[in-house]
Amino acid sequence: MSDLSSPADRASPTIRCLLGMLGTDVHNKGIRTLAQMLRDHGIEIIYLGEHNTCEGMTQAIIAEDADLVGLSYSSSNYLDYTRQLIDTMREQGVGDVPVMLGGLIHPEDSDALRQMGVSGIFGPGSKIEDILDFIHRAVGRADEPAR
């Protein structure tokens, strides 16, 4: 039992994942379901909901010290918004926080997204195991001590 407590905690702290949507997209069904499923797998979700601006979301990433960011899109503007967000994150010094995308993402946009710096893309039909697997790997990489 002892390894469930403090020392082990330190080695693998609880993952804090920030989930939100950008712009005026109101289709929040997917992100709400994902939030619940990740919660049920032991992840702490900082839920920002819909209608965020890139500026506001970046500040939230900083203030919440999020381990990674998940965005959901069901509208066609994801290339623009994702680029804007990642640019803002870099300007604000949190460009190293992994970003994953879900929703109606077209395979043919994958390359462009990855080039921008998106590290996980989960289009229609993605499995929760794959998302979890990605999260654990991405956070493992990003897990460095405070500065």
Binding site: G23, T24, T53, S75, S76, N77, D80
Partner: peptide, 22 residues
Amino acid sequence: DALSQQSIDPDHPAFGVEVGAE
């Protein structure tokens, strides 16, 4: 479009890319 549905003007500084999109 989503902006007009939400009564947001197309010159709103945060959402330019969405004007007329869907």
